[in-house]
Design a protein around this nucleic acid. Sequence first.
DNA 1: TAAAGAACTTGTAACCATTACTATTTTACA
DNA 2: TGTAAAATAGTAATGGTTACAAGTTCTTTA
Lengths: 137, 137
Amino acid sequence: MQNIEYLKQYLISHEIKPSTIRLNALDYLLKNRIHPTADDIYEAVAKNIPTLSKTSIYNTIDLFLEKGIIQALDTGEKEHRFDIEVSTHGHFLCRNCNKIFDFNIDSIKYDQSKLDDFLIEERKVLFKGICKNCQDS
Amino acid sequence: MQNIEYLKQYLISHEIKPSTIRLNALDYLLKNRIHPTADDIYEAVAKNIPTLSKTSIYNTIDLFLEKGIIQALDTGEKEHRFDIEVSTHGHFLCRNCNKIFDFNIDSIKYDQSKLDDFLIEERKVLFKGICKNCQDS
DNA sequence: TAAAGAACTTGTAACCATTACTATTTTACA
DNA sequence: TGTAAAATAGTAATGGTTACAAGTTCTTTA
């Protein structure tokens, strides 16, 4: 884990008190942008903190969600996946390798009249299919 | 349940053999476009078929999904919800009343280069927020 | 510096939608 | 009508997540 000061500031600037678990989880999320599951995060952080409990990871995830430094993805798989990139962007889930690929969304043109006076707080775009790699092999 | 012949043909034309449960489930889905959960469907169909088991509803849903007459929605709620409307369209989930509203999507402009040579089979768009009704009250 | 309270972490048990499995019933068809 | 296949029911298991209680660490303040 490097740049501990950076990680600390990252958390503090989002009103999260730094703790060993939180710093480790953040470090993992920043360096492994694979949209990991809670278990992925647990396994990774447990390497540095052998006493780590699953509950602490769920607590950490809940806190990160609440403070807005990660977003949750519901892909139809049974586990949630999490993304340290919180800006609005699209996700492509490969049905074969289960990898998720990010892509930028410029605009969504939709029938605004149907959502007239609706307060839209979140926009999620999920594509599913087969990624280039999996088609080639 | 009316138009049994229509419902039968609906199923048969999608390679689904009509059975009492399937006809009842289809009837419910066509008449109640509320994006119901498996339990919603179970409760509704059980009124007509008291011996109905939950498993049969899950079997029916799986079959309907496989044959493409419904689509599954993953909204972040723990239960899946299902939509008899399978054309590509957007869903708005109200965080307050949990109702889902459909809206038409004309186009999504995104960075195609990121998905170059990807096979896109499914496009899901989910907005979350507060619906008009819930804002008013 | 120490006590007290708050925050954090752990471990276990419970939750609950869904799936697996097996047995039973119904349907299709020769 | 008999037999195989399909459909249905009922129960148990699965597994990600949450609830809860107890223990530990940190922070504050006298």
